[in-house]
Amino acid sequence: MKKEINNITELIPQSVPLRNIDDSPGPCCMSFGFDLNPLIQSIERVGLINPPLLKRDNQGSITIITGYRRIKALKSLHTDSAGCRILSGDNILQVECLLLNLHDNLAIRKLNDVEKGMVLVRLIPWVKTLEIVDHYMPLLGLPSNKATLASYLKIEEEMEVQAKESIAHGQLSFRNAIMLLDIDSISRSSIIDLISNMKLTVNQQRQLIDYTIDLSHVEGRSIPDFLDDQSIKRINSDTRMNNPQKGRALIRYLRMKRYPSVSKAEREFKKMVSRLNLGEMVRIDHSPSFESPYYRLEVLFKDGPSLRGKLENFMREDIDSLRDPWKKKR
């Protein structure tokens, strides 16, 4: 590394007119989906504490190494100039700037998943894959494996800004975003719109994506066409339901479409059990998707006599009518 880079703190900040600084994100920037307001308020209150680090090449043009957000905040406050440290010359390697930015960021905040992808994509041309996996991924708090690296690179390189914003703002989970990589951008966008509108939970997002992709295949329709379904629209625009209720209704509807036989069996089973007068303290459940051959009887009781009473009541019910719901009545 260049001598000055090892001694950044010894560089004396100089006043730099902000209009001279190129404020496009640039090759070192790893900020995405941020809210500038807290920083603006902080600078307004106490001023700029940490000077940004800039690079000035031999032609005099200035790019940001660290402090992209600070410069943006200062510009939005219409500040004319700010004290910045400057590295000069053409012999400063891009990778050195990149690592300065990375460590500057890691020291003060947690990167979101899109930003982690930005870091990894920027490291790829300079650092061997194995070193990225072994050293930089743990630094970013990521599991040290190639599959995870591949996912982050794909999200950064292939996802549209809308999708990345949803990830950065925590509306779309990273794992679910990976599921969206295999579909086209228009389909992706229509699913993300629904996720954002209904504020679906991570689990509901996964189910929505899975069911939608499957059903669009089964029905031979495009995903946007499939999601244009009247029932889905009705759920989405139902003013009597809040978002969690809408989310549950949507998933229930899609699940019934995706698993008609399973849903029918569940309904039948529920009907069968409800015909028995079990009371509140006795339950009969089936295994997930009826895969196990066994059903479960659950009895809440206080003591032996109360258990005996409940079991005697239970035995008086028509329990012989219980059967696998897909089987004909005996």
């Binding site: 698993y259 036989s261 998707s289 009826f290 895969e291 696998d324």
Partner: peptide, 17 residues
């Protein structure tokens, strides 16, 4: 396209019936 559910061995398989 079929109705696959999670089997007892952690694999997806057709609904039992």
């Amino acid at each position: 396209d079929g109705e696959f559910v999670l089997g007892l061995d952690g694999k997806m398989r057709y609904f039992k019936p």
